[in-house]
Every structure is written in structure tokens, then in C-alpha cells.
Design a protein around this nucleic acid. Structure first.
Lengths: 232, 232
DNA sequence: CTCTGTTCTGGTTATCCTGACCTTTACTGA
DNA sequence: TCAGTAAAGGTCAGGATAACCAGAACAGAG
């Protein structure tokens, strides 16, 4: 939520985005969830960390406004963007009534590494969040819950990976999101029975082990069932 | 969406509600989904049917505004109210930019029967909708999809029934929502294995058959997993 | 060249869940 | 007393899942 233009009898509309990336834990090295925060430069909550966002102009769609604000503050262009929830309690902002349409985005690890991290943008681990401005802690909590439940029936893991990937890479994404280890053999079976992911003939050599095959998403199949809205 | 107060550079916030009730089909007699529509009295779309709704005042929460608008236009007080989606495309309304926070509500059959149905409020079957104002057909379509997918893991069927109910009544609710018949024996097993619904010792006599037992929801258990927001 | 550690890959088994179907029970109304 | 109806409970096969085991294929050390 950006600067305030307080006024009575007016409901202002903002967009905020919860962005999630997969990066290694600094100590254990296992992949965990990270998200970028921006430092607020104005009141209210000046100096506090918050989710990237801004006001919605009259001539721009909600998703477009979320993506634009995200790019302007962090230079990130997410591989996945989905509406999460509209937060509109009366007391959310001390400077007037604000309804925030919150979006939820995933970025690939390469993008996250290349993203500008300066004075006012910082990546933090999802389970080590500081106290955020407004009700943003609650928003992040809800976003992570949605991520965990959605992973099961959708192909959102795709957003974290490149065009091709090994089964172990894909399994690491699932493990990071779900927070528990998965059996490699069973995971392989569940993926190979799904038409959304196809095996290629390519292999990856160079590791001290049997070379794994590369897989890719089957773009012809749309498995994620988001209902009549397509990608709501 | 109510009357327009067109102005440039301003994003107005409205709430609309998709309300669903279970009532018998006029010919077949089986229970199907119905929803109440209100006739628009002003431009744009004057004379067309639309979802009940209105503007959000600065001092009222989103869910509260949805419930109040719903009561004022239809006298309905839903047993269940949940946020569905925020629709905010630029061209939704011909009279300026409007972001509609759409809620989704269920009412019991008794309430639906007692509801005022006059010149400007009419109940229609979900699969025989007329052409609605704005993008409301698309909104209803999405709401019904959510209802069908959510029925599986939640206790929302409760909203359609009273305190106690027989398994057949509960099964009829599920059948109406899913649109297909369910095996009574298997349905019984799935319900009895769930801790959310408990069997009482009461029976219902009067039918020309073995008297069924009454069941009730276990209020101590919160099975519906709506995440950290509780009832988002 | 052989050995070893690692991960990939495929297979087996027990278990749970689901759907389809059948039988018995218990009531009302003719 | 009988017929009709729906409740209630049981069986059984098939599919999905989880846990576990074993061989295959590489890189690097010695």
C-alpha cells in the first residue's frame, strides 16, 4: 500500500502482491520459500517492510496493475499470477478506507537471483518474516496456505522451474512447498501417470550418479482446473 | 451494481452476492439450485436482471456491506457467506470503472420460500438464467463452479439444512449440487466416517418405510479448512 | 582398472478408498 | 396379512497410495 491521500467517504482501491520464489536455505542448503519485501518510505508505517503494491488507476485492470507495480518496485516479472483475496476491513489502514486486491505470484529462481536487492527491497524466508506494515502478515499467511493446498492439483510448480527439468528438481519444488520429504519412486509414478508432464529423451550427465532424464510440461494439456474463469 | 455516479479517474467499489437456494424443480420435482435476481430500475442495463448488490460505504466492511445490501433488496439473511472473487476489468461497466467484490451465499429452503418475490425480485433456476446485466452471467458461472468443487471438502451443505436432518435429506443436497445421483449406501459410509457429522438416537416416523435416524453437525469440530482466515 | 558413493529407475507388497451391488430391517397403508 | 418403500448394513473387486527393496548407471578416488 503506497502513500496516503486521506479523505472521508471514499474507498480507495489498491493492489498488493505476495511473490514467492524457491531459494536455498542459508544454513541447511535445502530449498525453502522466500519472498521479496519493500521498505515503506512514507507514513503510515514508514520504515516498516511491506508487500509491493500500489493504487489501481481507473484505466488499468486489476491483474495488470498488480504486475506493473511489482515490476516497478522489484523488477520482477512473475511466471504465475493469480488473485488471492480482497482485504477490505474498515480499520486496515490508519489513513482512510482501503480495499486491497491481493495477488499471488511465483517467480523462477534465476529471476529471484537476478532481482535488484537494495536498500528498500529485501528477500526474506517465509518462516522468518519480520513484523510487516498494515495487515500484511495475515495476508502472507493466507497466501502460503493457498500455495500448499493448490500445489496438489495444479501445475504451479511449473512457475518455479525452467522449460525442462529432472524429476528430482520437480520433487524438490514439491517438498519445499509442502514442507515434507516425498518418496522419489512414488513421486515418479504419480508424475508419469499424469498427462501434463511428458518425458523427453534427453539426459543430464555430469553428476556422480546415473544420468536423469529431462521432463517438460505438455503445453497441449490444460490440467489445472480453475473453473470457468480460466486463470482467475 | 446500483446506480451510476460516473466520474473520471475514480475507481468505485461495489459488492454483489450470488445467493443459492435448494428448491424443487417445477416439473420433475427433484431439488435443484435456484437464485434470486433483482431487476435494475436505472441505467445502465435498466430493466435487465442482475445480482443484488450496492456500493461499499467507507465505514462498513466488505462482508457486512454484502449482507446488508442483500437484506435490503431481498430480505434474505444467508446461512453462509464467503468471498468469491474481485471482478475489476476496465470495461465492466459503461459508466466508469467499478471493482465488484462478489460474495457467495447459501440460504435454507424455508427462507427462500418466505422471501418476498415481487415485481423486481424473482427466483430463477441456475440452469435457466436469462441474460443478465454487466458481466453477471460470468460471475454466476464461476460461483456455481466453486460451489460444486467446494461441496466435496466442506460442510457447506449444512447451510441448506436445519439443525437435524436425515441422511437422505443430506444426500439430496449433495445430489442437487453435484447434479448426479449418489449411492445411498456409499454416501452413508462416507458420512459416518467423518467426525463432522454425528448420529443422534432420534428417529423420524410417519413415512411408509423404516424410520430413519436423525443426524446433526458436530459443532465442536471445524472440518472445513478455509485456511488461516477462518471463514474467508 | 576397480571400487565406492550417489542417484536414477523400476518392481513388489500391504493398505486404504471407492463404487457397485445385495440383503435384511422396519415402517405405512391397503 | 400383505405389498411397497426406504433405511441400514454388508460384501467384493478395482484403483490409488505409501513403504520398502533392488538393480542400473554414472563420476571420482585409489
Amino acid at each position: 500500500m503506497p502513500e496516503s491521500r486521506a479523505s472521508r467517504d471514499e474507498v480507495r482501491v489498491a493492489v498488493s502482491t505476495v511473490i514467492v520464489a524457491l531459494r536455498p536455505h542459508p544454513r541447511t542448503g535445502t530449498s525453502v520459500l522466500w519472498l521479496p519485501l519493500v521498505r515503506r518510505t512514507r507514513e503510515p508505517f514508514a520504515g516498516r517492510w511491506a508487500l509491493p503494491g500500489g493504487w489501481v488507476p481507473a484505466d488499468e485492470g486489476l491483474a495488470a496493475a498488480a504486475a506493473r507495480n511489482l515490476f516497478e518496485t522489484t523488477r520482477l516479472q512473475p511466471a504465475y499470477l493469480e488473485q488471492l483475496y480482497a482485504f477490505g476491513d474498515v480499520g486496515r489502514s490508519p489513513t482512510g478506507r482501503v480495499v486491497s486486491i491481493v495477488y499471488w505470484a511465483l517467480v523462477r529462481a534465476e529471476q529471484a537471483d537476478a532481482a535488484s536487492e537494495g536498500e528498500n527491497v529485501r528477500w526474506v524466508m517465509a518462516d522468518e518474516l519480520p513484523e510487516l506494515a498494515f495487515d500484511h502478515n495475515r495476508i502472507v499467511e493466507y497466501a502460503l496456505w493457498r500455495l500448499r493446498t493448490k500445489m496438489e492439483y495444479s501445475r504451479i510448480a511449473h512457475a518455479f522451474l525452467g522449460e525442462t527439468f529432472t524429476l528430482t528438481e520437480l520433487r524438490h519444488v514439491h517438498e519445499a512447498v509442502l514442507g515434507r520429504p516425498l518418496d522419489p519412486a512414488n513421486f515418479r509414478r504419480s508424475i508419469e501417470s499424469s498427462p501434463a508432464i511428458v518425458r523427453t529423451d534427453e539426459r543430464v550427465t555430469g553428476g556422480r550418479h546415473r544420468p536423469p532424464r529431462l521432463y517438460r510440461y505438455n503445453t497441449a494439456i490444460e490440467l489445472a482446473d480453475n473453473g470457468p474463469l480460466g486463470t482467475p
